[in-house]
C-alpha cells in the first residue's frame, strides 16, 4: 500500500489543461467575436478535442486499450474516425447553413 506522490508529469498536464481552459476561449472570442458561428463550433470542438485526447491518453497509458489485443486496433481507429466524422459533419453543416441564401421575408 504505497502512497507515492503524483508524478511531476501529471501535475504539468493538470496545469496545462487549466491554462487551456482559461486562455483558449478568450483567444477564440478575441479573434472571431462571440457572434461568429465558428466561435461556437471551435469552442465545442476545441474543448471536445481536449477531452477526447485526454480520454485516449488515459486508456492507452493505462492499458485499457491495447491495439495489439484482439481487434482493439479496429476500435481505436473507429474512435478516432468517429471524432473526425462528427467534427466534419458539424463543420460542413455550418458551411451549408451560412452559404445558402434565405428565401423568406428579411426584416
Amino acid at each position: 500500500m504505497s502512497n507515492k506522490p503524483l508524478s511531476p508529469k501529471f501535475w504539468a498536464l493538470v496545469a496545462g489543461v487549466i491554462a487551456i481552459c482559461y486562455f483558449y476561449p478568450r483567444l477564440l472570442v478575441g479573434l472571431l467575436g462571440k457572434e461568429n458561428p465558428w466561435t461556437s463550433y471551435l469552442y465545442m470542438y476545441g474543448f471536445g478535442l481536449l477531452t477526447f485526447g485526454i480520454g485516449m491518453l488515459v486508456i492507452l497509458k493505462s492499458g485499457a486499450l491495447k491495439p495489439s489485443r484482439g481487434n482493439e486496433r479496429f476500435w481505436m481507429n473507429l474512435l478516432l474516425g468517429g471524432f473526425v466524422f462528427f467534427s466534419t459533419l458539424h463543420g460542413l453543416w455550418v458551411i451549408l447553413a451560412i452559404n445558402v441564401p434565405f428565401k423568406g421575408v428579411v426584416e
Binding site: P37, W93, V94, A97, I98, F102, K103, G104
Partner: peptide
C-alpha cells in the same frame, strides 16, 4: 431556403 440562417446552424 425558408429556414433563417441562425436556425440552420448546428450551434
Amino acid at each position: 431556403g425558408f429556414l433563417p440562417v441562425e436556425h440552420r446552424l448546428p450551434f
